[in-house]
Design a protein around this nucleic acid. Structure first.
Length: 799
RNA sequence: GCGGGUAUGGCGGAACUGGCAGACGCGCUAGUCUUAGGAACUAGUUCUUCGGAGUGCAGGUUCGAUUCCUGUUACCCGCACCA
């Protein structure tokens, strides 16, 4: 039978027999394998998806054979801009395009024979799904963690959309690449910052790959320092600063506050150069994020005339500047500047001709700021202290006693901007009432559905297109019954993916977002694989969300994922990222048509180190096809015996061990190469036994599920592979009876000898010295030492 | 600037806990069979002046280093005026 028919045949069999459906009330131990669900783009499946799905499919299939009740689900992360843009152009509801795309994607995934449990398929755009996304938003709201705030946000003037920090790349919009500006806007926020420490700490309870943990730690950006109050002269007003170096307080010669700092408003009456300040504020806000970060060497700012700050330790008057190198959204939006020991402060001081006081010995402050450690000077009671830790401890003790400062911890992580001014997202289920303020949509009224309309363009003032739809906007206040208006912002793309793995556990439940029974049984995701590009954003949002649900008693574990792994990208054969414009895109469909799904799967697992990016190579795909053809052809050598061939027994046992371990350790490439080695050896035999062949097929089945089932059936070797037990190896049969021992002279290989296993060291040494070639290299030389490592190597040291 | 990673044949990559570097595959070469082959099979394939030399480079530890240590270079990724 030809490949295509075989593959269709087995795909049909699995579907009709519900072979891969996980059971919710199983007595078996569960194993939850999760791959990131795709955004169903019009372009269809990418070979990169296949790499991840095929590899984790092999894991899932093997775990099933090992006796686990495996949950391996798939769904669609289908909200997002492309569908909306398509809708704007063609005036069709985005759900229409999404439906089409899902159909294409699903067909492609099915043609690969991936063992997803399709009975649990979900889509974030399905009202039955986003009802519960909205429901969970209300939980955040009730807990005080969802709030509306006027925020200086990252605004993309091109997309007319507010972006989270996570969506800004180098000052540019991640989507359109255009520059980001700052804009004040009322936005729904989720209080993620409060969870910073938890998110940091929770990493200890996961076995994420180290690089993923580090990316998260970096992103959360914890820093330990102190908050110190500087009084403003002639007032009770305080300027609170955050610093990691309170020990340098005697070196403070000026202060800098962010241009948006509220104290400017408060002390407006005293400020003599308010015009100049306003002009600078204006200049800073119109500067794009790009300019603000990239031209970072050139410091700008304005000295505030009209008040001073008082150094709480030295009681000296200190001038205050505004400058955009201080950010309002980090720390307190104000810093104490120590130009002698901070590069940025140094540059600013040089530019504005501010004095520089050295308080730590070791550098040359006429040339640059010295940021290293050293002896404290010009610092009153700190003088003479040699280490940073000691100096910080002493000054903090002093500050605490005097009530002027205290230790403080800050995080880079910000609250999550949860509003988007877009149509194609989950409506935020809130209602604004003149009398009652913000009122949540009652639970029984969920979901707040997206309406059917003709135009999907954002409004000119940047509001969601929903704002232009009176039938959607106008409603009654659930509390007082008066006329009210619906929130027209929608949730960000990350919302639906922040809990989807939970819904898979109980996808058809219309009473609860997931039943507690299902949650308790399936617990955490055992193995979650996805792209490295999601190591910070998606993974942090998801962990935050799950930690919150845990605090609400809604899920039984704080951390959602035990293990997180990432696959490397697949690049075009020219080493560049696959893209239409470069003409190097490989379509998985074409590969399946020409080589078969099994060959594509095996190739993508064999292609190289799973975690590294790799160039596509169609020749190599063909090589994998040839391997499968050889597996098929060797069936002709079958004899009727049901034990292992003695000549193959050790190798088969070794191969079982290797494949078993490799599939658990992301080493898909060497798992396959070990099967190739086994096949090579089988081809050298006159005949092979049924047991030899069946073991090969069972081991290969997770990678190449169709052809192995077919051959297993054809030669009547036993139960269906997918319904059989994973082969076990015999520890006592892993070692060959003879070993080859290398003989070195002065560390250089001069010969090898074959000896029975566990030959004594004396005997080996004797044999080694008798070796002809070895003699040649030892003749006339003094043998100083002979090192014999049993079963391995001999090294003869001569002079 | 900070944090992390990588470096092995023509190519993708193997190598357990320090013990025969280059497994496995691609490509290439020669041959067999064929009307033909971009099929299949067989043999070979790190370089070499045939002494040796070889895992980015320079050292070190060791009987022995791709593996451990010190220094260094290149490239890749993440974060970045974060106080």
């Amino acid at each position: 039978m030809e490949t295509k028919k075989i593959e269709k045949k087995w795909q049909k069999y699995w579907k009709e027999n519900h072979t891969f459906e996980a059971k919710n009330n199983s007595t078996k131990e569960k194993y939850y394998v999760l791959v990131e669900f795709p955004y169903p783009s019009g372009a269809g499946l990418h070979v990169g998806h296949v790499r991840s799905y095929a590899s984790l499919d092999a894991v899932a299939r093997k775990k099933r054979m090992e006796g686990y009740n495996v949950l391996f689900p798939m769904g669609w992360d289908a909200f997002g801009l492309p569908a909306e843009e398509y809708a704007i152009k063609n005036h069709v509801h985005p759900s229409v395009a999404v439906k089409e795309n899902i159909k294409t994607f699903k067909g492609q995934l099915e043609s690969l024979g991936l063992s997803f449990d399709w009975s649990r398929e979900i889509a974030t755009t399905d009202p039955k799904y986003y009802k519960w996304t909205q429901w969970q938003f209300l939980k955040f709201y009730e807990a005080g963690l969802a709030y509306k705030a006027k925020k200086t946000i990252n605004w993309c003037p091109n997309c007319k959309i507010g972006l989270a920090n996570e969506e800004v790349e180098g000052g540019c919009c991640e989507r359109c690449g255009g520059p980001i500006v700052h804009k004040e806007k009322e936005q729904w926020m989720l209080g993620m910052k409060q969870y910073a420490e938890r998110l940091l700490d929770g990493l200890k309870d996961t076995s994420f790959q180290e690089k993923t943990k580090l990316a998260q730690i970096n992103w959360i950006g914890k820093s330990t320092g102190a908050e110190i109050d500087f009084l403003i002269d002639d007032t009770d007003e305080k300027l609170k600063v955050y610093t990691t170096r309170p020990d340098t307080i005697f070196g403070v010669t000026f202060m800098v506050i962010a241009p948006e700092h509220p104290i400017l408003k408060k002390l407006e009456a005293r400020i003599l150069n308010m015009d100049e300040i306003r002009a600078y504020q204006d200049f800073a806000s119109h500067k794009s994020e790009m300019e603000r970060t990239q031209l970072n060497k050139d410091k700008t700012g304005v000295k505030i005339l009209g008040f001073y700050a008082i150094n709480p330790v030295t009681k000296t008057k200190i001038p205050v500047y505004i400058s955009d190198y201080v950010m309002m959204n980090y720390g307190t939006g104000a810093i104490m500047a120590v130009p002698a020991h901070d590069e940025r402060d140094y540059e600013f001081a040089k530019k504005f001709d501010i004095p520089i006081i050295e308080v730590i010995k070791g550098g040359d402050i006429s040339k640059e700021a010295y940021v290293g450690d050293g002896e404290m000077v010009n610092s009153s009671f700190l003088n003479g202290i040699e280490t940073k830790q000691e100096a910080i401890a002493k000054i903090l003790e002093y500050m605490d006693k005097e009530g002027i400062g205290h230790p403080s911890v800050k995080y880079r992580l910000q609250d999550w901007v949860f509003s988007r001014q877009r149509f194609w997202g989950e409506p935020i289920p809130m209602i604004k009432c003149e009398n009652c303020g913000w009122v949540p949509v009652p639970y029984e009224d969920l979901p707040v559905k997206l309406p059917n309309v003709a135009s999907y363009e954002p409004t000119e003032n940047g509001e969601s297109p929903l704002a232009d739809i009176p039938e959607f906007v106008n409603c009654k206040c659930p509390k007082c019954g008066n006329d009210a208006k619906r929130e027209t912002d929608t949730m960000p793309n990350w919302a639906g993916s922040s809990w989807y793995w939970l819904r898979y556990m109980d996808p058809h439940n219309d009473k609860e977002f997931v039943s507690m029974d299902a949650l308790k049984y399936f617990g955490q995701v055992d193995w979650y694989n996805g792209g490295m590009e999601h190591a910070t954003r998606h993974l942090l949002y998801a962990r935050f969300w799950n930690n919150f649900l845990y605090d609400q008693g809604l899920v039984p574990n704080a951390e959602p994922f035990k293990l997180r792994t990432s696959h490397g990208m697949i690049l075009g054969s020219n080493g560049e990222k696959m893209s239409k414009s470069k003409g190097n895109v490989i379509n998985p469909n074409d590969c399946v048509n020409e080589y078969g799904a099994d060959a594509l799967r095996v190739y993508e697992m064999f292609i190289g180190d799973y975690e590294k990016e790799v160039n596509w190579n169609t020749n190599s795909l063909n090589g994998c096809k040839k391997f499968l053809d050889r597996v098929e052809r060797i069936g002709a050598k079958l004899n009727s015996k049901t034990v292992y061939s003695p000549t193959l027994e050790v190798l088969i046992n070794k191969t079982i061990k290797k494949v078993t371990e490799d599939l658990d350790n992301l080493k898909f490439n060497t798992a396959i190469s070990s099967l190739m080695i086994l096949l090579n050896e089988m081809e050298k035999q006159e005949t092979i036994t049924k047991k030899d062949y069946r073991t090969l097929l069972l081991l290969l089945n997770p990678m190449a599920p169709h052809i192995t089932e077919e051959l297993n059936e054809k030669y009547e070797l036993g139960a269906k592979c997918c319904e059989s037990k994973w082969p076990k190896y015999d520890d006592t049969k892993l070692i060959d009876e003879t070993v080859t021992i290398a003989i070195q002279v002065n560390g250089k290989l001069r010969g090898t000898i074959e000896v029975p296993l566990d030959t004594t060291e004396n005997k080996i040494q004797k044999l080694a010295l008798e070796n002809e070639n070895v003699k040649k290299h030892t003749e006339g030389k003094e043998i100083i030492k002979v090192i014999v490592i049993k079963n391995k190597i001999v090294n003869i040291v001569v002079k």
